[in-house]
């Protein structure tokens, strides 16, 4: 087991190197640089930008730029942002990461709390009115684009009813303590539900079909034939087996948690990694693009590794040597 984990982690290194080369190449292949989109003010001499390019090393050949970047990376230095003057990439990411994490976890919690019970109930009562209702809701959740649902939610719950704030993470600078905690939760409700909606739908469908699948398998019939109570069949045999694909899903979700729902963050002006990533791409802020992409790469790899490890715990048929 430990050998397996160490082997997996060692494989990460070449994967990350390849990933970084691809991302660097793609980012550089995109036309424009941090200055092209901004240089539209006739009072500013374009030579100024030329000097700044030179200072940032943007005029070096791309492989040289990559090596320079990678050399700094190895020492743990993510470099300086090209757009946010005088800010280090690390500080920008640290500043945004908590917001995205809270929102992601909040959304995931909503997703799991809602989807798993509904999925199980639907599977136990297939083709009932409840099941059809849940299925309809599921397809609705998958079909409605996030941003649209977000706007509807803002219109209804923030503007018309005034129950929840629609923008940002906090009311003001003057709330503190427990109040701040509730204020932040209050701000997270709408984006959290919006973000969780699509996930809820897919988890629910997964859960339903897995439970249905397991319920019709031979060992469940055997268990029932032995006279085991429905309750025991469900909790001891069915759920365990049905949870396996959900755990895989959650492994992937790890990356999604960090990347946040880029669009949801935009709609709710929620300052997280997603908005930072989008802004950095439009501004060709290469150091930030690289750092976030790598961060996502690492979390997804770790998420998958964790999912594999949990597999072997949940499902004894799976063994790693």
């Amino acid at each position: 087991m430990y050998k397996y984990i160490i082997r997996r982690i060692l494989v990460f290194i070449p994967m990350l190197i390849v990933l970084s080369i691809i991302i660097f190449g793609l980012a550089k292949a995109a036309p424009g640089d941090p200055f092209t989109g901004r240089m539209l003010d006739p009072t500013i001499d374009p030579k100024v930008y030329e000097q700044q390019r030179e200072a940032l090393g943007l005029n070096d050949p791309v492989p040289v730029q990559y090596v320079n970047w990678a050399a700094r990376m190895i020492t743990g230095d993510f470099g300086e942002s090209m757009y946010y003057k005088g800010r280090s990439v690390a500080s920008l990411i640290w500043e945004r990461m908590p917001n995205t994490l809270y929102l992601g976890l909040f959304a995931l919690a909503i997703t799991l709390i809602v989807s798993i019970p509904i999925g199980i109930y639907s599977a136990r009562n297939p083709y009932s009115i409840f099941d059809y209702g849940a299925t309809t809701f599921g397809f609705f959740g998958l079909a409605v684009p996030n941003f649209f649902f977000g706007l509807i939610a803002i219109y209804l719950f923030a503007i018309k009813l005034g129950w929840f704030p629609s923008q940002g993470t906090i009311t003001g600078t003057d709330v503190a303590g427990l109040q701040e905690f509730f204020d932040r939760i209050h701000h997270m409700v709408l984006p959290g539900i919006t973000l969780g909606l699509a996930g809820t739908a897919s988890y629910m469908r997964y859960m339903r079909s897995e439970v249905l699948d397991v319920l019709s398998s031979d060992y469940i019939r055997t268990a029932k034939a032995k006279g085991m109570s429905d309750r025991n069949v469900l909790y001891k045999h069915t759920l365990r087996n049905a949870m396996i694909p959900i755990i895989t899903l959650m492994g992937f979700e790890f990356g999604a948690l960090l990347s946040g729902a880029i669009i949801t963050e935009q709609v709710f002006s929620y300052p997280g990694l997603g908005t930072l990533f989008i802004n950095s791409i439009t501004n060709r802020d290469y150091p930030i693009i690289m750092a976030i992409a790598l961060l996502l790469g690492v979390t997804i790899l770790i998420g998958n590794l964790l999912a594999d490890i949990f597999y072997s715990i949940v499902d004894p048929r799976i063994r790693y040597d």
Partner: peptide, 21 residues
């Protein structure tokens, strides 16, 4: 996971100013 969502929230709470404000 559910608790973590809440627990992390708690970390950001900075009890600095009095709630009276």
């Amino acid at each position: 996971l559910v608790l973590a969502a809440c627990g992390n929230e708690d970390d950001t709470t900075e009890p600095q100013d009095d709630p009276g404000e």
